[in-house]
């Protein structure tokens, strides 16, 4: 916007404009820099502390340059730190979270793609109303569903189990994935589908040959959204599972809440990073596509 840099001609007006431009640039980078510092500081603090020795943290303070280096905290947080009586670290909870997140993400994404396909390209009388009903699931606060879920999971024998959480997350996630995919598929020209139908292609063939090949952008968004959302979820995890069956978010709270003893920032930092790493990795590799796809699909 501001860079109408016509400062090639050496007249005073242009020189003034050039100075204004430079001042503007400095302000822009200055403000961005300050915000970047605020955004990065917590991450830097945690990463540094996860490699420091606890006595050194206690001596020099949590926010300080490291003067020691050890991998002790990581191995302790991963495999041997005591959370509420059991001394197995976060490993088990980490694997629980993986076992919960991966299937729930895949299933809900597949269902969302199919639902979105139907609701955009095979509309029938009343399908819009049904879509609105599914959309409401996006807004449902988890608290409303807690007691019914507890009952249903109990009846199915899925209390305190990762499978139970998979079920909960799939059903909760369908509304999001359907919304994303439906809004994206709407932009596929109907003529394309019509032509395929005239050529004799049916429901599944059109999905496989036309819709699916056009889907990667929205599927990436949906997978990232679901993966990070389910991995990071806490309420259902803490309510429906306990102890060794808990996902990592619940275990993290149990670990950092660990009451009266002096805070072991080294181990807690490593544990926090273990809990944050998978969604961060997903985001770093897919973030670019996420933003691009989100604006094509989710925001309509």
């Amino acid at each position: 916007m501001a860079d109408l840099s016509l400062a090639r001609v050496a007249d005073p007006e242009a020189a003034a404009a050039g100075r204004r431009f430079l001042a503007g640039r400095i302000a822009i980078y200055g403000i961005l820099g300050v915000f970047a510092l605020i955004y990065l500081a917590p991450l830097v603090v945690v990463v540094l502390n996860s490699f420091r020795e606890q006595p050194e943290i206690a001596r020099n303070g949590l926010i300080n340059l490291p003067r020691s280096f050890t991998l002790e905290a990581w191995s302790s947080a991963w495999g041997s730190y005591c959370i509420g009586g059991t001394c197995e670290g976060m490993k088990r909870n980490f694997l629980n979270s993986l076992a919960m997140t991966i299937p729930a993400t895949i299933i809900s994404t597949l269902l969302g793609a199919l639902n979105g396909y139907v609701l955009s390209k095979w509309r029938f009388r009343g399908s819009e109303a049904l879509f609105t009903l599914m959309l409401l699931g996006v807004f449902m606060p988890g608290q409303i569903a807690l007691m019914p879920w507890a009952f249903v999971l109990g009846k199915l024998g899925l209390t305190n189990s990762t499978y139970g959480l998979v079920l909960v997350h799939v059903i909760q996630g369908i509304s999001f994935t359907t919304l994303f995919c439906r809004n994206y598929y709407v932009s596929i020209p109907d003529d394309l589908i019509k032509a395929a139908r005239i050529d004799g292609a049916g429901f599944w063939r059109i999905f496989r040959k036309i819709v699916l090949p056009l889907s990667p952008p929205i599927l990436i968004v949906t997978v990232i959204w679901q993966f990070t959302g389910i991995w990071n979820e806490y309420l259902f995890g803490v309510v429906f599972t306990s102890g060794r069956e808990q996902p990592i978010t619940a275990a993290l709270v149990a670990l950092t809440a660990g009451g009266t003893t002096a805070r072991t920032y080294d181990v807690m930092s490593a544990a926090v990073l273990i809990g944050a790493l998978p969604p961060l990795l997903v985001y770093f590799f897919g973030g670019k596509y996420f933003v691009r796809g989100l604006t094509q699909g989710a925001i309509k």
């Binding site: 955004y39 709270v253 809990g275 944050a276 961060l280």
Partner: peptide, 15 residues
């Protein structure tokens, strides 16, 4: 600016 979105409220809140 976007990376905090990837981590959980649990992680953010703790730190």
């Amino acid at each position: 600016f976007l990376y905090p979105l990837a981590v959980s409220f649990i992680v953010t809140g703790t730190v």
